[in-house]
Design a protein around this nucleic acid. Structure first.
Lengths: 142, 142
DNA sequence: ATTCGAGATAACCATTCTTGTTACAGCAAA
DNA sequence: TTTGCTGTAACAAGAATGGTTATCTCGAAT
């Protein structure tokens, strides 16, 4: 499939929140974030909703409502974000069950699960090595 | 998107070819492979076509046509297969360009490309650590 | 040269995912 | 009570995926 942009949108929003927080603005709205990402505020709210469920951001309701980082940008890794917004594994197994009468069809799924698990573990470790603060610093250094 | 099953189908076919080759059967057809994977022969041919372009299998045309491994199963890694069947990156960037007037929107794409590149590199390294022979052995050991 | 079994490929379909969008209800601070 | 923003449902467009049928092509064997 085409790779989706959920991780990108979420990291973008968090990095942007870290930037404006550093500038003294505390609460931000989904519309303001949408202006930076160049998308619809509802898309941003969907992303922020997942980030909130993961404890990465906080929301305030009522008049003057908005969002705020719940943790320091230095402590939020891309792995935290990935876990918050993505649930599908990197590689899918068979669409329909393979033939159980074939020795390969019967036993390949556990074998693939193990192999794919090692790959996902490696990817997660790499994601854990970069923080939102890193991304923001790199973004502003260009 | 939902993760696709291209890597799974390709690895399944290659492991199955390694098995039947070990049993002395050299040329196999897409229909036979489709029976093990439990899908349509055309789907198998699409996968084998990509594997052939990568030099992992060979095809013979004409009467008594069929497919054969072009390399030893011990020498084919999941990274070889992945490269053959997948071209999309693991994580997509923005669907529509972020706002260039925002410092984050202006500079985040190179930053993300670098971070994502490190993750892909880690995933590729892990994929390179497993061979078709490994998968087949694990599959048959259950 | 003809036959024939298989690959190559185009075309089409249903399904699903993703993103964008509108609309409206809910909430709490002022 | 007003106000501004979140929460969420609903829907649409577009693309990707996998399955299917149909037709053309190839080349070994006869």
């Amino acid at each position: 499939m085409a790779a989706n942009s959920r991780l990108t949108v979420a990291v973008h929003v968090l990095a942007w929140m870290a930037l404006v927080h550093g500038r003294g603005r505390d609460l931000v709205t989904s519309e303001q974030a949408a202006d930076s990402v160049n998308t619809n505020p509802v898309v941003i709210r969907r992303s922020l909703g997942a980030l909130r469920a993961a404890g990465l951001v906080e929301v305030r309701h009522g008049a003057g409502a908005g969002w705020r980082l719940a943790r320091e940008p230095e402590s939020i890794t891309l792995l935290d974000v990935y876990r918050a917004v993505e649930d599908e594994p990197l590689f899918g197994l068979h669409r329909s069950e393979p033939n159980p009468k074939c020795p390969v069809g019967a036993g390949i799924q556990p074998a693939l699960r193990q192999a794919y698990g090692e790959v996902e573990e490696a990817a997660r470790n790499a994601l854990g090595g970069t923080t939102i603060a890193d991304v923001l610093r790199e973004t502003l250094s260009a």
